[in-house]
Design a protein around this nucleic acid. Structure first.
Lengths: 202, 202
DNA sequence: ACCACCCAGTAGACAGTGTCTACGGCGGGG
DNA sequence: CCCCGCCGTAGACACTGTCTACTGGGTGGT
């Protein structure tokens, strides 16, 4: 069995990911993870100094999964950078919607205090992809701002849509249960309305 | 008056707000709030059926404070709707930065399950102000999308900036420790670059 | 005036949590 | 061979949220 052999550390993370997807964030107690892994409650302490460190490792696995999905999408995507950005936005929002607990865990504030060094790096790599795409997508229309600023604002927009939609406010205030509308609005806003015509191509 | 003689309810919320601003979200345990209020740990149960209900009441107080700040700003603001939106964005980001724990509490997912009905309403009122301002700000430039969509996307952008900046990723990936740059980018993007010239006016 | 009643607050119990410490067994290197 | 470091176990400790029994005091009804 690939899960039972050898490293308990990897098995704890795997059990945490599975438990996080089945039950919510609430079920991710240290003792419950150890229970599901079939070890005593003190065992995780040999591999993770604290509970937050284990949660950070699980969140890191989430960034790994998201990064793999992004890489897989980029590999099998049309060469048009705007279409790539649209698909990337859909991927981000779909990831947030499908893996609710994981998305919530990945951006918890208390996880990068001390032991979450890898989290900023993981998100930074994903952000680099976004910067490159933004740079390519708005190459024709000259923009005064650096691409990192536009990419940052765009990422913030995507993240805000995911966050507010998950929180439930957008479902009642804005009539759109379609996140797609907000995604289009954000893309068109940050990349310029000239690119909006390509939206129909997808 | 059931609320006046039982002023413990209001005192619990006040103690929670104070405790939340001094220590973090971690300190907001039911027993600690009761301790700071000078009552036994079972006393809050007479006014709030569960711990989450008390937290929801504290978050509601946060929405109240934010709403008062917004109303105060609108009252003493220049009539230019774009300048009002800029100030409103600054106000939102400043509120998120100044009252970290409160902002985190106000958008916690588990608080509107069951007892958080008032939270969506409180945020909905603030959103209405935003929709009106967006409607007025882009009156000249005709936009195909309804104002609620633009306002929703803009709010999501503001919220995402606050969230990602608090999380810390924007501080390392984007070199700007200035949230102002991202705020300007978001406003110019969603309201059209034609309005960007007015940015220098403030 | 009296008495019953309700109600806010107290105190204790219970299960569950994260962290710490002492202990056991097991395998590899001196 | 022995000894030591590693890894998992078991129990304790101080917490937490929730539930239940209990008490004190004020109010309303008769």
């Amino acid at each position: 069995m690939s899960t039972s052999d050898g490293n308990l550390r990897a098995r704890l993370v795997a059990v945490g990911v599975d438990l996080l997807s089945r039950e919510g964030t609430r079920a991710l107690s240290l003792r419950e993870i150890a229970r599901q892994a079939g070890v005593s409650h003190g065992a995780p302490r040999r591999h993770f100094p604290t509970h937050q460190a284990l949660l950070a490792a699980i969140a890191r696995e989430g960034y790994h999964q998201l990064g793999q999905q992004v890489a897989e999408f980029i590999r099998t995507a049309p060469p048009d950078p705007y279409a790539q950005l649209l698909g990337l936005g859909r991927l981000y929002l779909d990831f947030a919607r499908t893996n609710r607990g994981m998305f919530e865990l990945m951006f918890r504030h208390d996880l990068l205090r001390g032991n979450g060094i890898g989290l900023r790096e993981a998100s930074g790599a994903l952000f680099g992809v976004l910067v490159d795409l933004v740079l390519a997508a708005r190459a024709e229309a000259a923009d005064a701002r650096p691409a990192s600023v536009t990419a940052g604002a765009l990422w913030a927009n995507l993240h805000g849509i995911a966050e507010l939609w998950q929180w439930g406010s957008l479902q009642t205030t804005v009539r759109t249960e379609d996140v797609e509308t907000l995604l289009r609005a954000a893309l068109d806003a940050h990349l310029g309305p000239a690119k909006a015509t390509r939206t129909r191509a997808t």
